[in-house]
Design a protein around this nucleic acid. Structure first.
Lengths: 347, 347
DNA sequence: TTGAAAGCGCTAACAG
DNA sequence: CTGTTAGCGCTTTCAA
């Protein structure tokens, strides 16, 4: 029992393939009566069109390929949700792939996705190796690099400067009077954006004649448990820190829990600073500093750009959309008007 | 500058389309010399095969369609990561869709995904309306219903009993001496599995002559912030509860933070119980009870079943794989051997 | 080991 | 308003 084809529906309805096709797609020039007969037949036979044939024939697809490094960190699913929502109603459909922070796997996934002839592709970050860049360029479709701005974009670019985010946070913390800094991170050789934040943070520290008094970086991926463990160890070795910068909010939350366990006052004695602005942070028993990254919004904006570019707007290529993260959780700092995370265009 | 086709590669290599096709796919019967010539040409031209044509022609695809209700709750991305990992090396590729807990949207997404002729489809839960079930059945491919067991499966079924999870948790808590129960949940009309857990919990309470002294259910989706807010309100109204059951760990964590803010001892005065066994729970400043649901494992097992079913194993249909969540965080209860979350087969 | 013919299920372009 | 013809780019099948 094979699935019915358009031809079978057409025969059932007593019309030609073409008329059936038009009726099903809601083309204007089909008599109401014919249309109803076709639709009735299709419904009765549980007809589902074959998109492979449709796309092959019409030379266009509704697929938007998306490649993210991980699903274990809530930030990427949030971006995907933004993309998916932003595509809603466009007739386009996002297809996701996971690279596990592995450049070779990323290349293979991108190659595989391109073979489905997507109408656009969205990848994470700007640090693809040359071979992958070539693949992307040869695809001849809009390419969006998402979440990061620190690098040279291929085509469209939507994100925030992680180096800048690290710098801003360092300035804010030094401005809040902190001087003895620790750093707790994880998987920096894989999560390049976390590395860029750290580098930016250190640039500013150095400009003030300061430095990380202690650093602890683990190979494992970030988690609350890891942040807690590394922080307990660090505070045992260097109890007199007054601020710890973490690779992200998961790690930072673990750091807070470590401080609570040790009876260290947060933020009075030690200020905890992370990155992302997770929902979690707003409910924690003590305030921690963070840069809010507009993850869902970045996904939605990327989806908008895809829609424009696919619609053929010629000015919808080679653009950069800049998001500016907002720092919260530092007393006397985030009194600044919480400006909406607006997107600025840079031609 | 269109993308090169197989034919163009063939001409470039001085062979026929067919030979080029065979060479590229690594078919045995192509002379080494010819093969190299073809591959060289393909590489030079950055040839990427057109899967639409491939699949249309060969009548098979490597697509596994997956529909989940949300990306905002970390449990679904974890399931997706499991599916994706479980499919690795099979040549199959997962395609994800988000239904936003909306049955109409779910139906549309399923219809759309089926039009891509996937070789299998994985959906969340067993509560699809009849129309969607029909769609799934007519697709004539392996259908996997994931995460829940409470209902009548269409084909393959992998998950755990949420009713049973609620019952087990209630038994454990009553066994731990708790008597005055509150319930805090959210979006129960959408998250049917949370509703099943609550119903199971209440069944057991009633069997002990107990009931929820107070209930608070919000329409919004679960979050730590919401759990905290509802708990603060509940404890203001009914301060003498000795246990609160939450719709999940996010809500429960918020509940813990509320108790900490109020200076209520957890778990001495109030025992907090959730569901999922999130990473977060293990690092919290006070122990809370939870049922660990093996999210990633469920995804991986689903992927295995897909591989078997697609490979044609006839006994790979109409099966159920039962997971049993493990309760942790109740003093004197989880001393029980932490048995690995094994999968039991039910023919 | 290679090639030619036919066709997968659909739509574009043209004709009636 | 409806039908016909010709592919889309690839694989299958059969023949050389």
């Amino acid at each position: 029992m094979r699935k019915p084809t358009l031809e079978e529906v057409a025969i059932e309805a007593g019309v030609s393939k073409m008329t059936a096709s038009r009726a099903l797609r809601g083309s204007a020039d089909v008599s109401k009566e014919t249309r109803e007969r076709v639709i009735e037949a299709a419904t009765r036979m549980s007809y589902v069109g074959n998109r492979l044939a449709l796309s092959l024939s019409s030379q266009r697809t509704n697929l938007v390929a998306v490649v993210v490094p991980s699903m274990s960190n809530i930030v990427f699913p949030e971006v995907l949700a933004g993309i998916s929502a932003g595509l809603d109603g466009s007739g386009m459909q996002a297809v996701f792939g996971i690279s596990d922070y592995d450049v070779a796997k990323e290349r293979d996934i991108i190659r595989d996705m391109l073979s489905w002839q997507p109408c656009a592709i969205i990848v994470t970050g700007l640090d693809q190796p040359e071979e992958t860049v070539k693949l992307l360029q040869h695809a001849n479709i809009p390419v969006i690099q998402l979440m990061d701005l620190d690098g040279t974009p291929i085509d469209l670019n939507v994100g925030l400067s992680h180096g800048g985010a690290g710098e801003d946070m360092a300035r804010a913390l030094v401005g809040a009077g902190r001087r003895r800094f620790g750093y707790v991170g994880s998987a920096l050789e894989k999560d390049l954006r976390a590395g860029k934040r750290k580098a930016g943070f250190e640039r500013v520290l150095h400009s003030y004649g300061l430095h990380f008094v202690n650093q602890s970086v683990d190979d494992a991926f970030s988690s609350i448990a890891l942040g807690k463990r590394l922080t307990l160890a660090m505070l045992a070795a260097v109890p007199d820190l007054d601020c710890i910068y973490y690779s992200n909010d998961d790690m930072a939350s673990g750091g807070l829990f470590a401080c609570m366990e040790l009876g260290v006052a947060v933020p009075e004695k030690i200020l905890i600073a992370g990155f992302n602005g997770l929902d979690l942070v707003n409910s924690l028993p003590a305030p921690i500093a963070t840069s809010r990254s507009p993850r869902r919004a970045m996904g939605e904006v990327a989806a908008q750009l895809v829609r424009q570019a696919v619609a053929g707007a010629q000015d919808a290529r080679q653009k950069t959309v800049v998001f500016k993260p907002v720092i919260t959780g530092i007393d006397g700092y985030d009194d600044a008007p919480d400006e909406p995370e607006t997107a600025r265009l840079r031609p």
